[in-house]
Structure formats: structure tokens, C-alpha cells
Design a protein around this nucleic acid. Sequence first.
DNA 1: GTGACGAATAAGTCTGACTTTTTATGCGAG
DNA 2: CTCGCATAAAAAGTCAGACTTATTCGTCAC
Lengths: 233, 233
Amino acid sequence: MSTTGRGLHGRVLDTLGPEITAGEYPPGSVLRTDELAQRFDVSRSVMREVVRVLESMHLVESRRRVGVTVLPSREWNVYDPQVIRWRLAGADRPRQLRSLTVLRSAIEPVAAGLAARNATAEQCAELTECALGMVAHSRGHKLEGYLFHDVAFHRVILTASGNEMFARLGDVVAEVLAGRTHHDVMFEDPDPAAVTLHVQLAEAVRARDAARAERLTREITEGALQELDILAP
Amino acid sequence: MSTTGRGLHGRVLDTLGPEITAGEYPPGSVLRTDELAQRFDVSRSVMREVVRVLESMHLVESRRRVGVTVLPSREWNVYDPQVIRWRLAGADRPRQLRSLTVLRSAIEPVAAGLAARNATAEQCAELTECALGMVAHSRGHKLEGYLFHDVAFHRVILTASGNEMFARLGDVVAEVLAGRTHHDVMFEDPDPAAVTLHVQLAEAVRARDAARAERLTREITEGALQELDILAP
DNA sequence: GTGACGAATAAGTCTGACTTTTTATGCGAG
DNA sequence: CTCGCATAAAAAGTCAGACTTATTCGTCAC
């Protein structure tokens, strides 16, 4: 599931990145490239590349004669998929999941409204297909199959919106949905009301009813907020 | 205004990054590290660091025996502030500005609603201060001063929402607002209605009226959409 | 046509020397 | 005692070159 994997450089990043995002080094901590290279048993060249990437994510700042300083989390590029993954794997997973769910509640209704205007016939077909898949896996502990179609559904919506910024959140939504299914409590079958809403949403998009699509999505995301005990606006 | 600047590495990035995001190399194009190093007159070490950063932004992919392949824009980390800046500086600035304005229209109303619940007394004070600043600079071609307070206003709203994902969009909103003032048509004074809305919004937040704050912000962002001839939902 | 083997290629890695910037220290002057 | 300047030290930045490794492509045998 890890994206980086490839190469020595990636392996070091996969260790150091999570450590930093987990807050193991408080903001202002100073790391030395040489020490890190020694610790990970890699050359300074590799270590420098790692530091450069961390720097581009605004996790650290590298200054001469000082070292590599860990930045406060307020500076981090929290939209970087890599950073999101690291944080979801770490200790403040719950907080992260809440932040992302609130983000979803802002983005997805608007995206659905746009999708209702811009979706191609093919995308409409995909949407109903996904909704049917959700229905088919909504009973009898078929959680994995349900999740698969749920993720695909939201991905299509975001893509069909025609807005690249929205489309790029597909992975984020996938992580959030997967997180709910795997880590949090969801032993039972999914809420039947949610399934119905998805079916209706697919229909609304195909009918080019933007207002209805937006309203239905708002109901869906409000459900997601309530699951995390976040009071709905 | 450029963030990278520092070091040889940063200067190369500031040239190559914009070239890629401007679409100068079509997706699938292959660059060679050695050639690039020669072109920029830097060592391969430096060039490798640059490639690593571009790779972490998903602008390129580096594969052995093949070279550095430019990825399609659909893959790019479009939320990376660096990437956003590069794209805003390039040819598809208008498209980018539209995407970001739509994003604003989704995020800011929700953020304002949360701000009305979570804002501290100090943040409320800042907000009214900014609103007053906007009023003071709303007549007589004081566009720069108006912009300054406008940016500060929206930054406070996003921060006060208490959601880190929203807070991180402060820079993006700043870029969009600055873009409108500097590049697009805005020779005259700002729309008086918009100014009023900001004043009312500051008031709504202080009064802890989330619904009203959200509604007012929706009006503000709808105005921004209309300025770019984007049909409002 | 297919499969395997081998050669070419470009990225990946390591090492060690050197440069540059920034900070701290310490000395001397006031 | 304090201020300021010069000097030294520390860590990142840069470079050059040699070597390794994975991948692809071409060729040859079957």
C-alpha cells in the first residue's frame, strides 16, 4: 500500500517521515544529516535527497551551520497524500480522520452539484453501477465489497465534477472510507439509509438535478460527521 | 515572493518546475538527469535532489534505464503550494484561478460556519479590525490596502475554523485574491456590496451565528464565481 | 513466433574532498 | 562591564568520479 517503496531513498523516507509526522521530534528539534545517514546506514547523498523531499513537504527546514530543523505541524503540507498517509498511520489518526471528514463535508456536496451538470453518459453509467454494487453488498457482512463500490462511487463523483482540485481528493476520500471500515467500529452492515442516498444521488446526477444532488450529498456527509460524533452544522 | 530561492538546488527547481507545470514537456516525455545537469551547469548530485522533489510532487517519475518521465497533469499534487504558484505564474493561469475559486466556494462557507462556533475573542477582534480596514480602503483607488485587509480577513476565518486542512488554504486564498487585484480587471473600487458582506460576516462570527456566517460567506464566494463568469449553483 | 540470453543504458549509490554560510566564541577597545 | 569586531568552528552545500543494479532492447537459437 506504500507508494514510495522503491529504492534506498524511499525506505528511509518511509521511516523518517512517519516519525516526524507522529511528533516524535518536537518542533524546533534539530537533526544532523550525518547522524541520520549513520543511523540508517546510507550515504550522505541518499540522506540529502530524503531531507530535500521532507523539506518540500515543509516538514523540516534545512539551514547551514544549524542542521535540519523540524517545523511545527502548522507548516506542514497537510494535503500531500504521502503526509496524509503517514499521519493516518500514526497516533493522531482520530484527529486526522475528523479533519478529513469535515473537509469531505465541504467539498463533496459542491462536487456532486457540479457532477450533475458535467457528468458524461459514461460516468452516469459508472455511478449507477457503483450504487448497485453497494446495494448488492449491503447485507450479510460483505463489508469489503461494499467499501470497494463506495470508494469507486465517490471517486466518480469527484472526477465528474470537472474540477481538478476536487478530483485529486479521490485518494483522500478512499483513505477515509477505508479507515472507517477497517479501524473503527463497523462490524454490522452499513446503514440502509446511506445506501438509499447513494442510489438516489446516482439518479439525481443522471437527471442533471444539481440542487438535489448537492442536498443528497450533504445528507451523506452529515451522516459521516455524526459517525465521528462531530456536531453537524 | 519565491519560496525556494535558497541554494543552487532551489534555483534549478524554480526553472524546471514551472517548465513542467506549464506543459512544456508533454506527458510521457523523458528527461535525462545527466543532460539536465549539463544544461543547468550543476552536478548530478544537485540534479538528483531536484528530481527527487519533483517526484515527490508527482510531476515526474524516475525509472532506471528509462529516465525521468513527465507525468500527466492528472497525477500532479495540485495542492502543493509550490505547484500552485508555478501554475499561477504560467499559461493556464485562468483555468487554475477558476479551479481555486470553485474550491474556495466549497470550503469557505463551511469554514465560516465553524469559525462562528470556535473563534476566540481575539480572532473576533482581528476579524472586525480587518473588516474596518476593508471599509477604510474601499474608496479612492486604495486597492493594495483593500487587498491586504481582505487577505487577512479570509485567513482569520480559515484559521479560526479550527480545522487544519482549512487553515492551510490561507495561502491559496491569498494567491487568488491577489491574482484578481493585480492581473484581472479591477481598476475601479471594489464592489460595495462585498464590503458590506464582510462587515456583516465579522459580526455574525462574533455573535456565534453559524448559519448566518455560512450564508453570508456563500454570498461572498458566489460573487467571486460570478466575477469569473462561472455560473453559480 | 517465441523464448532466453546478453549487452547497453541510465538511474542509483558510495566515497572523499572541498566550499560556503552562519553562528558562536573570544579578544580587545572603550 | 559591555559592546563590537575578527576569527574559528560546525554543518550543510557542492562537486567529481568510480562503481552497482535494474531494466529494456536486440539478437540468436529453437
